[in-house]
Design a protein around this nucleic acid. Structure first.
Length: 270
DNA sequence: ATGGTAGTTGCACTA
């Protein structure tokens, strides 16, 4: 038996509820981690999600920007002792603790700051915030090394050459600059494995995001892998498959990110 | 060197 986990930057939960319903019907995820819900907590569409079968829901949202949510058919305990990153309560991280037949499983759902346009911390506060955010998170995982953990989300960094459509042309474009990719290496180095690249070799192009600003995203295919699934090594033998749902980018009124599904076996071996 | 599109909001901001 597998836990089917989906992560998706939905870019407005209320606007794209119909897409979420369609995804649910087609893929039946047990747990969904959403980013950029863009809805304050009092306006969160809890009943619509519970009607889909997600009885257990944890969310942190604000007006207009950011916002993360975990929707689950399985019971979990929300993490309540997580740090406030960069002294801002801007709704970029929540977590959940599951009990499985093979032991506990901790789930982190992150929305890392995008970082603006200019890759210079002296000129761009948003870029400075992005780097500071990753530094703080890295320090925290260094101090509390992850065990039996899954970390997913829109991390807004494409770390490898084949995670972008043109390594050379994007080296000075935020999401693929050396200060970002080196920080991501340090972050994952606190104790995670890049599970997507365990399934799809690093020599192959792999994207989860295509800009709205390209007229024909499929023809130009100028994508980036900004969304990630990381597992601690003690869970890697439980990873059965990962799938990037690229077709969803071509659905009616899509998000600019597509969902990623991970199947994790949670039943004891004989 | 620039502009291209989308969501939320309220005539600007973020991505």
């Amino acid at each position: 038996m597998c836990m089917r986990l989906m992560t998706w930057n939905i870019n407005s939960l209320r606007l794209r509820l119909p897409l979420l319903q369609r995804l649910d019907a087609q893929h039946r995820p047990d747990v969904i981690c959403l980013q950029e819900t863009k809805v304050s907590d009092p306006l969160f569409p809890l009943q619509a999600l519970q009607a889909l079968g997600f009885e257990h829901v944890h969310f942190a949202g604000m007006k207009s920007y950011n916002g993360v949510a975990i929707l689950s058919r399985l019971p979990f305990t929300p993490m309540t002792e997580l740090p406030v990153w960069c002294q801002r309560n801007d709704c970029r991280h929540i977590g959940a603790a599951f009990e499985t037949p093979t032991g506990p499983l901790l789930l982190h759902n992150f929305y890392v700051p995008a970082g603006g346009d200019v890759p210079d911390v002296a000129l761009n506060d948003k870029f400075a915030h992005k780097l500071d955010f990753v530094d703080e998170v890295t320090r925290w995982f260094t101090d509390t090394p992850p065990r039996r953990s899954v970390l997913v989300g829109d991390l807004n960094i494409a770390p490898l050459e084949q995670d972008v459509w043109s390594h050379k042309q994007l080296l000075n474009v935020i999401s693929h600059t050396p200060p970002e990719t080196s920080r991501m290496a340090d972050w994952i180095g606190t104790g995670f494995v890049d599970a997507m690249r365990h399934i799809v070799p690093p020599s192959e192009k792999l994207y989860t995001w295509w800009s709205y600003r390209n007229r024909d995203w499929r023809a130009s295919n100028r994508g980036r892998r900004l969304d990630h699934v990381w597992l601690t090594p003690d869970l890697m033998d439980r990873l059965k498959d990962i799938e990037v749902l690229q077709d969803v980018r071509g659905w009616e009124s899509p998000s600019d990110h597509v969902p990623v599904i991970a199947d994790i076996d949670i039943v004891p071996t004989a």
